[in-house]
Design a protein around this nucleic acid. Structure first.
Lengths: 184, 184
DNA sequence: ACGGTGCATTAACTTAGGTTAATTAAGGAT
DNA sequence: ATCCTTAATTAACCTAAGTTAATGCACCGT
């Protein structure tokens, strides 16, 4: 359990926050709504999705056990979240108002470093994704994902993965076929 | 002048940091090297670039007056920077060791909030870029850039912009031709 | 005026992803 | 066992980007 998880545990204990249960398909928070709570995933798997006016869906991220879900835009800047958070599997989740974390952080100034550190890690992950979109082909992104996140790879549909990689499910299927052809 | 710029000004005064002069083509920091200084651009324009082993170049960002350049990976995690910083125009720059900022922040705990805030803004910009790569076509990204950053658009070559958008200069030229055809 | 140099443009051809729709495969429910 | 649903695959066709190379254009220096 790292420093940030410790901080969250304290906030949860202090405020007696309950564990919530969701089932696959449930929505943790909606797109277009200001949601200033953070969601600590205790178990299960969720996706963050952009849904376009024309119905097209894009997957921003997959989050699983011990990940922290939420919308930076909402939580920090009080703007509507540009994406929704939807359960792929049944989930146990603890909802934490961001204000509680800020309050706790005021009373324990040394924890501001932990908050900063958390934000830095988040930024590092975004840097990686930015790099992949800019410099790698969809096929390379696919192969990288498979080796980097095998535990998530096993739990999502090919279609969901395609929408995360920025291509259509049909295109991902063709990539698979190409890779298969190389083996033979 | 916002809070973060104030913080930086204090660090600069305290340490009597000089203004450095670079000309177009000069390198502020190299790819593959640990560079734990931040570079405050007083005037001019720089680009952050990934250069691949095969010689292909990709532009991660353009930074201009009052922007802060540097590599998160290097500055925070002491890893080699995955990208270089190269001047597009002659620049006046102040180099600030990140350690100085941390020290200053220790002595002025209220400034940790400013640091956190800065990181949040940085993350917000990355979110926007992630969204654009995931959900927009190259043409849409081009049109968005033109209206969102006209002051930078005017100062870069079409080739550099193409490598920022994730396409080749030839492709961007064709997009222009398509847009032009629509007008007529 | 002349000959670079660097960009932007255009063309021809290749490759890969988008779109739509039909087909197959695999589970789940009754 | 049968039906229903969903996901994955395949095909056909269209569109756009990658690649390479030739051409055009404008600015610069001498």
């Amino acid at each position: 359990m790292d420093k940030y998880q410790e901080l969250l545990s304290n906030v949860i204990d202090q405020n007696k926050l309950p564990t919530l249960n969701y089932k696959a398909g449930d929505v943790l928070f909606h797109q277009g709504i200001v949601e200033s709570k953070l969601f600590w995933i205790k178990s299960g798997l969720v996706k963050l999705v952009f849904i376009q006016p024309d119905g097209k869906e894009f997957v921003k991220a997959f989050l699983a056990e011990n990940d922290l879900s939420g919308s930076l835009m909402s939580v920090v800047f009080h703007k509507p979240s540009p994406y929704a958070c939807i359960c792929i599997e049944a989930c146990e989740v603890i909802a934490i108002p961001y204000k509680k974390i800020r309050d706790w952080s005021e009373k324990n100034p040394q924890l501001k470093d932990v908050e900063l550190q958390f934000m830095q890690q988040l930024t590092a992950r975004k840097e990686e994704r930015e790099y992949q979109f800019l410099c790698l082909t969809p096929q390379q992104r696919y192969e990288t994902f498979k080796v980097q996140y095998p535990h998530i790879f096993k739990r999502i549909s090919q279609a969901e993965l395609a929408l995360f990689l920025g291509i259509t499910p049909v295109a991902l299927c063709r990539i698979n076929a190409r890779l298969q052809a190389l083996v033979e």
